[in-house]
Nucleic acid binder design. Sequence first.
DNA 1: CTATTTTTGTTTTACGATAACTTTTTTTAT
DNA 2: ATAAAAAAAGTTATCGTAAAACAAAAATAG
Lengths: 331, 331
Amino acid sequence: MRVTIKDIAKKVGVTPATVSMVINNSPKISQETKDRVLKAIKEMNYHPNYIGRSLVKGKTNNIAVVASFFASLFALEAVRGIEFNLRKTPYNLILYSTKGMDENEDDLLERILYERRADGVIIISLKAKKELMDEFKKEGVAVVFLEELIEDFPTVKFNNIKAAFLATEYLIKNKRKNIGLIVGNKGMNAEERLHGYKEALSKHGIEFNSELVHTVVDYSFEDGEKALNSLLEKSKKLDAVFCAAGDITAIGFMDAAKEKGINIPDDIAIIGFDDVYIANLTTPALTTIRQPIAKMGMQSFDLLLEVIEGKEESEKKIISFEPELIIRESV
Amino acid sequence: MRVTIKDIAKKVGVTPATVSMVINNSPKISQETKDRVLKAIKEMNYHPNYIGRSLVKGKTNNIAVVASFFASLFALEAVRGIEFNLRKTPYNLILYSTKGMDENEDDLLERILYERRADGVIIISLKAKKELMDEFKKEGVAVVFLEELIEDFPTVKFNNIKAAFLATEYLIKNKRKNIGLIVGNKGMNAEERLHGYKEALSKHGIEFNSELVHTVVDYSFEDGEKALNSLLEKSKKLDAVFCAAGDITAIGFMDAAKEKGINIPDDIAIIGFDDVYIANLTTPALTTIRQPIAKMGMQSFDLLLEVIEGKEESEKKIISFEPELIIRESV
DNA sequence: CTATTTTTGTTTTACGATAACTTTTTTTAT
DNA sequence: ATAAAAAAAGTTATCGTAAAACAAAAATAG
């Protein structure tokens, strides 16, 4: 059987409460008793059971991360960042994946909320219902959003508008006139990136043409190929693409272009998004927007911790990360 | 305040025990009472608290996955597989990362064991001490290893020997005589891959030359460049490399070769390992060994479940996955 | 040298749910 | 009609820990 606080108490000849106080380093226990208890704890190889502790404290010491790990690399990279900072704390990391099925999302969040499996939740790139989120608040479960913004909730974000603006403008400055946009079909990111794209066009007096916007669902490699075909069909003059749907899709685009005998960057220039690991391994190396995903993950964890600890000023904090254009060879 | 079983009991006019039995669908409760309780549960939006339940049941319904998510893509991909199957069960996934610091490993495992945070553990690519693992067994915490093998514990493995054999033999059949090996510096994988490499050489009457073996610590892109330099220094005649340290390192090798003006595959042929996403996006596309990592993850979870459920025959089961050589352009 | 603190523990209760036991009610058998 | 059996629901104890309330001994004050 496993060693409990009672066993220690019996061995030392004190009550369980005393042992508990020693463990929690209460000043009410004499050093002599502490030493005796500590010695017994070591000898009997006692470790506190977190379930018992959780029950009485109303705290799990768990952090939940909810995301669709099958939709993109973003969530995985963010988790790495979260884990990096979490390791320095007594918290544990529970992973919940929606598998890209958005219908599950609410169920999943409800489950997390009502089963009280975590003290805080980081929600990555998911659009959650405001009412449900308010429930979290009411029940005292901390929430931080990563990438998606919900009113009155703390968020870690990327400046997508500026990112798209930078990329598009860079293409314009490279004398490109017919700039396609490949972008996701949902979420705030997509809207913002579209917005930045439009802004750059308008600033430079280029008329927005909705035919040049191709929306994408999976952010997959294959989506890149589809995008190429669809865009070429609509515009023979296409001379550049900003692939706001991520580097993987951009690489798919490049690959398909190569097969068609289209030269990149001479015929069509392309800019990706994220700067994933492989972006500088392609030929030509992909010019892209760098998004510091892991750092954003770390930050979101730190922010969550503040909310859990009850820092008022953190409860509506919005932390924004700025984009960086990584210039390589694809433009 | 949150709704507990007592609130339901009071509302319906029964005792908490009755409510509990309804929740657990005990046959001892009349349908009429069940209906009334169920109705109240819905009305009051009651959800069982898993901590209370865990305490009395001695079961957490959590699965822990321990790995170094910073060393390679393997662990991340495996987690995806694990999560895929886990979602069909009532279990939750807790992630523990060693951050590649092996000293932490034992501490981490001890913590998992003694805090009883999980009913079962999947250990990925980590060499754990047999004695510590025996403690898990003694304490009734199920363990499954993925990729690393420990006597008397269930394991999901890849046939590394055959994989290395296949790759090396393919190079030999391509008339390559001086075949380098890039391989990790620790773990059973590395040994097995070295073994398969030697076997292929010996079968075809090529003498093993330890100078052609380059060991690597990080499995990183940069390691590939280092490997190229080191191998070329030792052998001018190098005409092929089997990069058993993974595709990323192989791509690093290719990249460095390109810079040096070495043609792949004409001057040096290369075969990677894993078949990660990007292996077919490089130029030339990388010939590699496909390892069904996600499937191995799923399988390891299924196996763990069997062990948790007490299936005797699963307790020492070793499941092996067979390699597949994916022929592309780098040989 | 008594009265008051301070120090050091102990008792008691609680967290939320469940399992084992008991009691009450209903049904069935004789 | 009454005992025995079965069904339904209620009681109590428990999981491991911690916090609040309480108690005794030791130390300090006046």
